[in-house]
Design a protein around this nucleic acid. Structure first.
Lengths: 234, 234
DNA sequence: TCAAAAGTGTTTATTCTACACCCATGG
DNA sequence: CCATGGGTGTAGAATAAACACTTTTGA
């Protein structure tokens, strides 16, 4: 096994932008970095790519370390490669974003990282270029969610139409007409109405829906227009 | 300057998927690899990220080496990080895709790479995972071009409506109604009709158009629906 | 004069938008 | 019984889709 002569080698990390939705607001899962430099500062959850794993496997491992969750929605965002982005030594970071059901996380939280959820438009200063990663992830989330049904990944198995509406309104920081919204969502035929209601938020109660997993998987890449006016995306 | 102890370092490369349009077909610019392993095999143009440059700068440098062009459309595609993707030693590759005016390239071609243009659906076997990169780039191109006016990047300064239609038809491998197509394109207000005609392809001649650069830059991220039925994208 | 490609309009179907009232229930 | 949030329908506007003939001109 020859090598490529004279080429520099670098560290390669993975950082995860983890989104959750608590019923009110889109949130970001952040940790307190537990090693130098910048120890104790807020940071995205990350780690170095190990010799035996792909970058995606690294992202899954890192996500599992923090949340105990597997099988969550994970997508490569972009690789950040400015030479000076890490002051210690040159490190490229492959950013991934994940969408998780925040309640699943609460069940399985690993305390050692001092993790916390922060609203997407009011989170603490982050180390290195992590804020740029978050902003890019937020843009990407809006972009994709306007075309594909990815936001369901943030919800529990059963959810109501008002919850869904809240979520979209918070993600796009915009108000949508509930009649048009539910018509559009239902027209995708992705939802199955349940017989029972969530009565925690109102006296009348709101019917639960479940995702039709089969159709969801099959139609994920089909184009679906979820957002009335996509000016919010830019 | 301390270091992160015990972490492995890897090579980081950049590979460029370079698209062109020759008036008939969407094409891919490939080179014959000039070093071992796989010397003489067809490959994407690539190179290693140098210590003083970001990955994007590396991509620009590599693009310039081959084509002599600067200021071309370049977008990060995805990072390929399987541990075994390069048999020599672990190398992650950040793939970029570029859209160039094929005629500009012909003027400035650098002979040393034995480069050649190949139709996007009939190109030779490529080294490593380069074919996967090409297929992903093709998907991304279709996806983006259905929403944003990026395909203009493939055309010379002046072009005709039939050329434009040909290009879209070839990219999507589909036939579009020329009346609806030109109406849609013109409704974006991105094109300026010229007084002169291209008479090389017909006796009657077809009017040239130029991009309105100002509007193009300003509206690039606005959503524009270019493709009648986006089923082609999946 | 005719073959070959460019250019142009209208009708119909579909989709989107705006908008307001009744319903169910627990307190 | 009433306040609170959940649920539903329709009409007008805008957009998209289908479709065919006329124009130009070089050979």
């Amino acid at each position: 096994m020859t090598r490529y002569p004279g080429q520099k080698h670098y560290l390669v990390a993975v950082d995860c932008i983890i989104f959750g939705f608590d019923g009110e607001h889109l949130k970001l899962l952040l940790i307190k970095r537990d090693f130098e430099p910048e120890k104790g500062k807020w940071s995205l959850m990350g780690g170095f790519v190990q010799p035996d794993e792909s970058s995606e496997e690294a992202a899954k491992r890192i996500l599992f370390q923090l949340t105990g969750l597997e099988g969550v929605y994970l997508e490569q965002l972009e690789t950040f490669g400015r030479p000076d982005r890490d002051p210690v030594e040159r490190t490229l970071s492959i950013a991934y974003f994940a969408l998780i059901d925040i309640h699943q996380y609460e069940k399985q939280i690993s305390g050692k990282y001092h993790a916390g959820w922060y609203p997407i438009d009011k989170y603490p200063k982050l180390i290195f270029d992590h804020s740029a990663m978050v902003e890019l992830a937020r843009k990407r989330l809006r972009y994709k969610a306007s075309l594909h049904p990815i936001l369901f990944e943030l919800l529990p198995e059963k959810f109501t139409m008002p919850q869904l509406l809240n979520m979209y309104e918070d993600v796009y920081d915009a108000a949508f007409d509930k009649r048009n919204f539910s018509r559009k969502i239902l027209s995708t035929d992705l939802l199955m109405k349940q017989k029972d209601k969530d009565k925690s938020a109102s006296k009348k109660g709101a019917f639960y829906y479940k995702l039709n997993k089969r159709k969801y998987t099959a139609n994920f890449h089909a184009f679906l227009k979820f957002i009335p006016n996509p000016d919010h995306l830019i």
